[in-house]
């Protein structure tokens, strides 16, 4: 697959992700996990949560930890791709 096809596919993926922001910039974009939990709570008033998280990070810390997770993954992936291309270039 050529570099051009790659860019085209990545551009298309970016467009799919950006489209909702452009089409409906006022949407809340709340998480689906929380939406599902809210439905459970609303439709099953008798259900009692029997356990909770051991600890909950503060909002900003949550952002930090998600960013760390992504950075670790991207670093690993980039290392492997870089090594491969370095080897092929020799």
């Amino acid at each position: 697959m050529s570099a051009r096809t790659n860019s085209l596919l990545l551009g298309l993926a970016a467009l799919i992700i950006a489209a909702p922001l452009i089409l409906d910039p006022k949407a809340e974009f709340g998480g689906t996990d929380d939406a599902a939990s809210a439905v459970v709570t609303a439709t099953n008033p008798g259900y009692e949560k029997w356990t909770g998280p051991l600890w909950q990070p503060a909002k900003e810390m949550e952002g930090l930890l998600f960013a760390l997770q992504a950075a670790f993954g991207a670093g690993l992936l980039g290392y492997v791709i870089g090594r491969r291309h370095g080897r092929d270039g020799k």
Partner: peptide, 19 residues
């Protein structure tokens, strides 16, 4: 690495939610 990156990214969708 790929799974670590992708599962950390909460992306907006046309439903006005993100996942």
């Amino acid at each position: 690495g790929f799974t670590f990156v992708l599962s950390a990214l909460k992306l907006p969708s046309v439903t006005g939610s993100c996942s």
